[in-house]
Simulated assay, not measured.
Amino acid sequence: MGSSSTPEEFSDTDALQEALRAEHAAVYGYGYIGAHSTGAGRERSYTSLDAHRAQRDTLRDELVERNATPVAGASAYELPDRDDAELTAFAAQLEEQAEQTYLQLAASADPWLRDLAARSLQEAVVRRLTWGGSVTAFPGFPDGEGPQAGKSETD
């Protein structure tokens, strides 16, 4: 149970892999949402699905270009009930998870990755809003709280 007092080293590859994991989950989730929605909800879910598929492919390509093996999607993910309110909340949750991974990717020293992260974070926030999510002061941070919320200098 050894713990280190220094934070883990940031790795572009690790951050890309985390974002890819979120995209795999979103693709799976939006397929489920679309299959159990009707009307505008179904259209919105398929629009979101297409955006996440494209993002997933971009991340995979970037990892391959960096000679890394892209992580595969899980064989299954936890899914909500089929009720409209649950599906809508689940969609907003998928976007929030994506936001968190793109916020991490924004720490890259690579300008192209920072740009990708910023654009992807913005797109995820907009999609979350279309699913009834709310605007937070710091998108991507848990509970929308800033980077130092609740922490003192000695923490």
Rank of each mutant, 00 (worst) to 15 (best):
V64M: 04
T88Q: 13
G39F: 15
E43W: 02
R53Q: 14
L121Q: 14
P80D: 00
A107C: 14
A26K: 10
S48E: 10
R82C: 05
S45G: 14
A92V: 12
L113V: 02
H24F: 02
A26S: 11
V71H: 02
L129Y: 08
V27D: 04
R60H: 06
V27L: 09
L59F: 11
Q100E: 15
A26F: 08
R42F: 09
T58N: 14
R114S: 05
S48D: 14
R114W: 02
R56E: 10
G132W: 00
Q122M: 05
Q122L: 07
L63F: 06
V64Y: 13
L116H: 03
R114M: 05
G31V: 14
L79R: 10
L103D: 03
L103K: 09
G41L: 12
G133C: 08
S75W: 04
T38Y: 08
E95P: 12
T136Q: 11
T130W: 06
A25D: 10
Q93F: 11
T38K: 09
A76T: 04
Y30I: 14
R42N: 09
E65R: 03
A106K: 09
V71R: 02
G34H: 10
Y46V: 07
A26P: 15
L20N: 12
R44Y: 03
D61N: 08
A54M: 09
A98F: 07
Y102K: 12
L113Q: 05
G39N: 12
W112S: 07
L87Y: 11
Y30Q: 02
Y77K: 12
R128K: 15
G29W: 05
E86F: 04
A89D: 09
E99Q: 15
R127C: 12
G132Y: 01
Y32D: 05
R127I: 00
T58L: 04
R21C: 00
D110A: 06
A117I: 00
